[in-house]
Amino acid sequence: MADPVTALVVAFALVAIVAFLFWPHRGYYWRAQRVRRLGGRALLEDALKHLYNFEYRSQPASVESLGGALEVSQNEAADLLVRAEERGLVKVEGAVIRLTPIGRSYALRIIRVHRLYEHYLSEETGVTEEDWHRLAEEREHDLDDADVDQLAFEMGNPAYDPHGDPIPTVDGEIAPQRGVPLSEAEVGTPVTVVHVEDEPEAVYAQIVAEGLQPGVRLDLIEITPERVRFWANGTECTLAPMIASNVAVVSSTGPVEDEEDEFQDTLAVLRPGESGEVVRISRRCRGLARRRLMDLGILPGTEILAEMISPSGDPTAYRVRGATVALRKEQALQIQINRTLEAH
């Protein structure tokens, strides 16, 4: 029989090796796989996307911007362009880089996959919005046409992704960009966010932190070279103009009824025995999760009474239209209410 110490040492060594190889994301195997992928098609596709995005916004792309976007050196970016040119995807004339029609339709296909996948993540999975872009970046390179069409079909052929970007059709048609950058909007008129740029990640995180996403209504207070100040989601927010320029808005005309403009309590503040009336379900709650809440009868105007809290601290059971329904705290936080004063 093996000596226990030897056996344990051997076992730990084995575990260490396996962990080194296959640790999620950071393991050697995954890293090697990523390097291999990036070396090939993925990098090329990302480059086309970058060129397309600049073209869409009528900005000139350069080797520098490409290198910066893909996080590669300028030499590598230049090599990449040569490869793309050889395949007839781009045309480089001096400092001007342009997509050929083939290159453009290739880029649109990738963008379609990316945005469809983001839509899928936001509607059908519980993945939070900070992760949508990153996951879509990974998946866009390995879904084939059949997968994509299937995905589009399953989603009911959506027209916009959750950031408000138009999703290109199968034939490569795409709606023109809407709205103006928030940093250039008119002070005094209410505006509605139509698009939030999800890159770079650090900037996007700041935008998300202010609760800005398509459909949110803003009131601009002032725009100075230092800052953009506005009311949104019931609080006053401030963004640097550079960041605000990544948010596109249109002036809102419709009725103000379904805007999240004043400060609201949420269902989560109710203690057992207290009750409130639903004002609205937050826009952050989407897809099946939102539909489920409405199925249970949680709609504007519904009276809800908190009944009891689980001994483990969460969820809480609420009385809704005669039925007792348990909801987790993160869902309760998305249901905005007005407290009712008299206890039931």
């Binding site: 993945v127 329904v325 348990a326 987790r328």
Partner: peptide
């Protein structure tokens, strides 16, 4: 749920009959 089945917990509603 932190590796191969990564994702946030989805909406939960449980009716207490």
């Amino acid at each position: 749920s932190n590796t191969i089945l990564k994702g946030e917990a989805s909406a939960f509603s449980l009716e207490l009959p």
